[in-house]
């Protein structure tokens, strides 16, 4: 085995040093065009003064250094929105994972027909576009015409008026539209656990909980990792639900999250540079969270 490979590496014709890069080239080119370039532009604009006046040539573009960032962090509303976003995203991720995993386990325990129905219901939620889902939820919880208030006997209670109740409403919608991915993925993961291992655990007299904790969960860890990271990214970047359900950030901006705030800055008031700076901050936060998470898992000896 060792001999021929060495010979190939040394041969002047098949010099392998560029081979991986050649294979990678198409993917790298696409990545560079679709990922690196926009991120580069985002970063660049965040260091400039770049508003509509600069875009349409009314005023010259000027370099601001970290000016946009100092402005952002001096803005108490931005800090408040950043904190809100982190807390809200954490709640959404926890909720989504809890519901998704519970239902995945449930799927493995029920008969074919209820399983099919549950799957169909989940796929329905999954396939609904965020804007449609949000609009329907707002209607369901409408103070005057919503069926939920009627069923619960809440009278004309307005869900979107209070800060907490508005966030709770959005939380429910976010969990509703994002649990199916978790459920399906985790369900597939559970199905991939070899029956022999589970049988062995059963023969050893392990309880259900013990089997989950010591056998299934560790084997599911890579799957859980993927869905967690994905949920973190999605929920941190939530836009549509907040924008639609709280009418662009709620009463007096009480339900603003970063993405909606960035939209307000970048597009509604054409301060593209400030919006970009918010985008960069979000990127860094997300990268940070993901890296720390990967790090933690690796320390536990997980091969990824």
């Amino acid at each position: 085995m060792n001999g021929p490979r060495k010979a190939a590496a040394n041969s002047p014709v098949h010099d392998g040093r560029w081979t991986p890069w050649i294979y990678l080239a198409p993917a790298l080119t696409v990545l560079a065009a679709l990922l690196v370039y926009p991120v580069y532009q985002l970063g660049l604009i965040s260091f400039l003064e770049y508003t509509q006046a600069q875009v349409s040539g009314g005023e010259p573009t000027s370099f601001q250094g970290l000016g946009n960032y100092t402005e952002l962090f001096a803005d108490s509303q931005f800090r408040y929105v950043l904190l809100t976003t982190v807390v809200f995203a954490a709640a959404c991720v926890t909720g989504t994972l809890a519901v998704g995993c519970t239902l995945a386990v449930l799927l493995t325990r029920v008969r074919a027909l209820p399983r099919l129905l549950l799957m169909l219901a989940a796929l329905g939620a999954w396939a609904t576009p965020a804007i449609t889902g949000s609009t329907v939820w707002v209607f369901l919880f409408d103070a005057d015409f919503g069926p939920v208030n009627r069923v619960l006997g809440l009278g004309d209670f307005s869900w979107t008026y209070g800060r907490t109740s508005a966030f709770a409403l959005v939380f429910l919608e976010v969990v509703w539209c994002s649990f199916p991915l978790v459920m399906v993925t985790v369900y597939a993961g559970i199905r991939a656990v070899p029956v022999e291992v589970l049988e062995a655990a059963a023969l050893d007299g392990a309880s259900n909980w013990r089997t989950w904790r010591s056998v299934t969960a560790p084997m599911l860890r890579p799957v859980l990792l993927v869905v967690t990271v994905q949920s973190v990214i999605w929920d941190f970047k939530v836009f549509t639900q907040i924008y639609v359900m709280t009418d662009g950030g709620g009463i007096a901006g009480q339900n603003l999250v970063l993405n909606v705030y960035a939209y307000q800055k970048a597009f509604a008031s054409s301060q593209y540079s400030l919006g970009s700076a918010i985008g960069v901050v979000m990127l860094i936060v997300l990268l940070g969270v993901t890296l720390v998470y990967l790090r933690l898992l690796r320390r536990k000896g997980e091969v990824l």
């Binding site: 660049l44 770049y50 349409s56 593209y272």
Partner: peptide
């Protein structure tokens, strides 16, 4: 090299009026 071409060619656009 790539970054260089990007820097040179792709600053955010400004209309010429």
């Amino acid at each position: 090299a790539m970054a260089g071409t990007l820097l040179a060619g792709c600053a955010p656009s400004t209309s010429q009026g």
